[in-house]
Design a protein around this nucleic acid. Sequence first.
DNA 1: GACTCAATGTTGCTCTTGTCAACATATTCT
DNA 2: AGAATATGTTGACAAGAGCAACATTGAGTC
Lengths: 223, 223
Amino acid sequence: MPAKTYHHPDLRNTLLEAAVALIGEVGPRGFTLREVARRAGVSHNAPYRHFDSRDDLLLAVALEGFERLTERMQKTLAPGKTPIERLELCGCGYVDFAMGWPNHLQVMFDLAPAPHTHGQRQSHDHVGENAFLVLLNCIKAAQAAGDLPAGDPMPLALTAWSLVHGIAKLGIGGNLQLDRKATIAFTHRAAQTLFGGMAKKITTVAESRPAPGAAHAKVKNEL
Amino acid sequence: MPAKTYHHPDLRNTLLEAAVALIGEVGPRGFTLREVARRAGVSHNAPYRHFDSRDDLLLAVALEGFERLTERMQKTLAPGKTPIERLELCGCGYVDFAMGWPNHLQVMFDLAPAPHTHGQRQSHDHVGENAFLVLLNCIKAAQAAGDLPAGDPMPLALTAWSLVHGIAKLGIGGNLQLDRKATIAFTHRAAQTLFGGMAKKITTVAESRPAPGAAHAKVKNEL
DNA sequence: GACTCAATGTTGCTCTTGTCAACATATTCT
DNA sequence: AGAATATGTTGACAAGAGCAACATTGAGTC
């Protein structure tokens, strides 16, 4: 009889699933290529037939994460009635994902190539694009409904993303001292506050600039 | 003559400085205890006399980072005239630090113990406390000046921190597609928007709640 | 001053990991 | 069937974390 099995059915996927599970358990620091192989029941070098390197596998995990994130946001925002409400819920979905899979989020965002290599980066950016588009579309819808000021939606989207991402990261790190549920409630209130500030600009523009040239200039020139 | 030197003057500090420099160059992933030792001109095991482990050294690096961050924020906010302006500048200082020492920030926040061990964590939290207090005091001053609504300043501070931290992390990761200067300018505008939204609550409260029970309840029960 | 002792460095392991190279088997195409 | 390719396997190697045993220094202490 033949001693070894060789040929695994869809090993690539098996490895990916094992990797996702392992990341969830031990985080990026404890993550090891050999352990993934072990869990998939193959030799320590089998993964190299499907992934270029450890980082390449991690990148695949990140990609999977962005898909999950996109789904989560879409599912969470669905029940919202008004555009602005859907926008808020979209942010809540982001944080909900983060609190549910903190290690996954870390892989998605903190796997960055230390020296900003603009070559490789492109593909990684592209991965998260769909998730960002969900947010961007919510912003556009809110603009169309008159809930947010018209104009380039990008700055608004990036600001909203920043707020939500910050809550997610700090929440994960325990810096907010809130559990998952409370963190999401907090996100909802924070989003309302931010969007309130954005909306303000169309109604009361004058108030935004107390002293047109004071520290405003300083911040651009001195830093 | 004696062949070896032994006894190093203040090796602990030398190691720390080497570690900080190394982190700046190669990031947490490329960081290696042995390379630190090499740069300090000692054997690969010398660091163990001053730090329990690799992670312990990294923690010291993080601590050093929080001190720098605190200084940076204080220095940046100083020229601000009004409380609200100082608050904005405080956030800009945070982002400025992040863009200047991205790897350092990563060590400070993403070194987290994957499973939330509430034992060890305490000390790490304590480290960043001073930096947070700078922000908190700015918030309180703005409240006292009537620029922000009175009441518990914590939610306001945490929201502001989240926004700024999010900008910092996304900026570092290249997700904002802005250089350091533009990122800080962006931070300034985002902060103005957020604080505008916070201030709004004291003047026009009614508008904040479009549909008191719609998806609001959903977000608390379903997630 | 000689002796003891703790602090601090050093060398030399062991174990684990990422990755490369060489080899074996399975599949596909002709 | 036979060749070429894809996919796994075993067996190296270098590098790093951390442990243990040894060496040197400096501070007391008699």
